[in-house]
């Protein structure tokens, strides 16, 4: 998100389209009733937490998109099954996977960076951590495996389909 938005801005690249996040659209569609979801499937009460991607939230769209993200997750998995992290939204910790860290090597450094995020997610006790960003997804999964976390790291879309009412 940031690469595109900030790239268009910083290099003043001419374009005719607007850039939106799929997260904002999910939330808009659910509110408008175009995307019908029902958390009834979550009979076992799987607990979910979330990773606010820095590039999407703090650096691009701010708290409103983080609020949308929570609204979508709660709509899909049940309000009572969402456990938030602290700090969160625009003030969230970076997972340590971004900025090219996943590609750069320096694995120990990357995991040291990710330890803060690991502790934070571990404290939630969630079964599932939703990561709406590919870098976050890879890093959150890696630190979970490396530091002995128990959660499952996933994208958001699979759960939406699970809750989808057609």
């Amino acid at each position: 998100m940031y690469a595109t938005l900030e790239g268009l801005r910083r290099f003043d690249i001419p374009h005719k389209f607007e850039v939106v996040s799929i997260i904002s659209l999910y939330a808009q569609w659910i509110r408008e009733g175009r995307l019908k979801v029902d958390p009834a499937w979550n009979t076992e009460g799987l607990k979910f937490s979330v990773q606010d991607p820095c590039k999407l939230v703090r650096q691009s769209l701010g708290d409103p998109v983080a609020d949308d993200l929570r609204f979508v997750i709660k709509s899909v998995v049940g309000e009572e099954n969402f456990i938030d992290v602290w700090p969160n939204k625009s003030n969230n910790y970076c997972c340590g996977g971004g900025g090219g860290a996943l590609q750069a090597g320096f694995v120990d450094n990357r995991r040291q960076h990710g330890k803060t995020k690991f502790d934070q997610l571990q404290d939630t006790g969630a079964d599932v951590v939703i990561t709406p960003c590919h870098n976050c997804h890879t890093q959150v999964k890696d630190i979970c495996d490396h530091f002995g976390g128990k959660w499952q790291t996933t994208h958001l879309w699979g759960w939406i389909v699970k809750a989808l009412q057609r």
């Binding site: 690249i13 374009h15 389209f17 850039v19 999407l56």
Partner: peptide, 21 residues
């Protein structure tokens, strides 16, 4: 890279670019 992608989207005539992450 940003410019090439922007040109592509404009060529397709799409008015909204959905970022998937």
């Amino acid at each position: 890279t940003t410019r090439l992608q922007a040109e592509t989207v404009d060529d397709l005539g799409c008015t909204t670019y959905i970022n998937t992450e």
